[in-house]
Every structure is written in C-alpha cells, then in structure tokens.
C-alpha cells in the first residue's frame, strides 16, 4: 500500500493537473503528493512529460487546469515577486547543468549568494568553498565550465542549487549520460544531501536501478497519467503490466516497441508517387 502522507507532511501537492502542448495532452488530471524530507522520484519513459512537470512545479510553465501547491502556496496564483521569493527556496539541477559558461566554477556557485544575500565577499568565499567541498570539487573552483566533464558540471550545478540552502531540490534526469563512477557519486550525493540538509528531493528520471536505490517514493507516469505509485520495492513487485515492463525494462508489454505504422510489407511494396 502507498503511504498516504498527512497534509502537514506534504511539501508539493498537485491536484487534477492538466497541461497540453498544442493539441497534445501531456497531463490529464494528474494528482501527485511529494512528502517533505523524502526523496521522491517521478519516473516514466522519454517524452512522458517529466521535465515539464518540474517546470510546472517551478512556475516556469502554467497548467491549463488544476492546482500546484508548494509549501502551501499556489504556485500559479503568486505574483512575480512572490514566485521569485519561493524559487529562492527551491533548487533545480538541470539535465545539462545549465552553468553560466562565462563564469568560473567559483563564480557560478557564488552567483545566487551574490544575487540574493548581502554577505561579505569573505563570507561568500567560505560558503562557496563549503558547498564545493560537499560535492567534492573544492579543488576545481578556478576551472571554467568548458574544462569540466559532464559529471563534474552536474556536481557544480548541484553545489549551486544548494547554495541558498533550499527547502527542496528538483533533479532533472541527473544520471543521464554519466559514466558508472560519476553515476555512483551522484546517487550517493543526492541521498546524502537530502538526509544531511533535511531537504526534500524530487528526481525526474528514467534510470530505474539508480533511482530505485535512493528513492523513498516513486510515481510512474505515462500517457499523461500516474500509472502507479509507491515505495520502490512495491513497484518492482507490482502486478501491473505497464509498471512491470517499465521497471524491469522488458521489450514486450503494453508499450509497443514499434512506433505506429502500416504493415511492413505494405510499406515496402508501396508504389512511390
């Protein structure tokens, strides 16, 4: 059974979310509750709207219908000033890292501190070095983003995301394109940061094995709906055909291997106009 978090335990509450891109429905009446202090994973195949969901939570996109509350505030009813205030308490790790390419590693991590605090340069320096130490890259503070590997860039982006000690961090496909060592480091780092800083983590990913290691709760989404949710083990043991195919990476199942097309023979012998 899925543990139903009590109202005060819920940091992000999504109710009846509907969102379209053009005529294509990305979400149709989605309900999600993200408990405070836990690592929650939103999983699903590519193109199922996982990144869109993070952008909706962060207020970068506006839903067609439904309501998204973060820490009790309706994100899409906030004024720009209040939305920005809320975002200061939300960190986001983009798939590409999204580091500012004209700034060094140090300046990237210092950026939100310089923007939103009145700390002295010496205090900012100490904080930045501590954040970089937490991700193991204090020694790389003078490097430019172009000198970093993909894994290092994501760790710097993570240091920047935690610079303001946010209440939650959203991770957009943090494991994609990582070598096994970087992947292992990131997996442990996300869990460690979540527990040490007592923040709430939302991971959007389709990497089942890595995400299952650290997630407390998983939502599986596809075709604009939540297919199933629960702790990782429950989903692994799920009897649902779709969930089983996704969690175990099976070729056969309700998700077809082939994109819809006419029969091969018809296509091969069709006369070209």
């Amino acid at each position: 059974m899925i543990r139903q978090p009590r109202a005060k335990d819920t940091l992000v509450r999504i109710r009846d979310l509907t969102f379209h891109r053009g005529t294509r429905a990305i979400f149709e009446g989605v309900d999600i509750e993200i408990p405070r202090g836990a690592v929650t994973a939103i999983m699903g195949p590519s193109g199922s709207g996982k990144t869109t969901l993070l952008k909706l939570i962060g207020g970068q996109l506006t839903p067609d219908a439904g309501r998204i509350e973060v820490d009790g505030q309706d994100v899409h009813a906030l004024s720009t000033r209040d939305l920005y205030r809320l975002r200061m308490r939300m960190g986001m790790l983009f798939q590409s890292g999204a580091l500012l390419t004209d700034l060094s590693v140090f300046d990237n991590v210092a950026y939100p501190l310089r923007e939103h605090t009145r700390l002295t340069p010496s205090m900012i320096r100490k904080l930045v070095l501590l954040k970089l130490e937490a991700v193991g890259l204090r020694g790389a503070h003078q490097l430019m983003p172009s000198e970093l590997s993909g894994g290092m860039a994501r760790r710097v982006a993570l240091a920047r995301a935690i610079a303001l000690d946010p209440m939650m961090i959203m991770y957009d496909e943090p494991f994609t394109g990582q070598d096994p060592i970087s992947m292992g480091v990131l997996v442990q780092l996300i869990r460690r940061l979540n527990d040490a800083a007592r923040i709430t983590s939302v991971i959007v990913s389709h990497d089942v094995a890595e995400t299952s290691q650290i997630a407390d709760l998983i939502y599986v989404i596809s075709n604009g709906r939540v297919i199933e949710s629960g702790p990782p083990q429950t989903l692994h043991d799920s009897g649902g055909e779709w969930t089983r195919q996704f969690m175990q990476g099976l070729a056969d199942g309700p998700v077809p291997f082939h994109y819809p097309a006419p029969e091969l023979a018809l296509d091969l012998f069709r006369r070209l106009v």
């Binding site: 952008k55 962060g58 970068q60 920005y84 205030r85 975002r87 200061m88 939300m90 960190g91 986001m92 983009f94 798939q95 590409s96 999204a98 580091l99 500012l100 390419t101 950026y111 939100p112 923007e115 939103h116 982006a157 920047r160």
Partner: peptide
C-alpha cells in the same frame, strides 16, 4: 539551448 536562461529563472533571477 543550454538552459542557462531557465537556470537563471529558477535561481529567482529575471
């Protein structure tokens, strides 16, 4: 394209 503008938005910078 490299999400730097989105990154700024999410850092509460216009």
């Amino acid at each position: 394209a490299t999400e730097q503008l989105s990154g700024l938005e999410m850092m509460a910078v216009n």
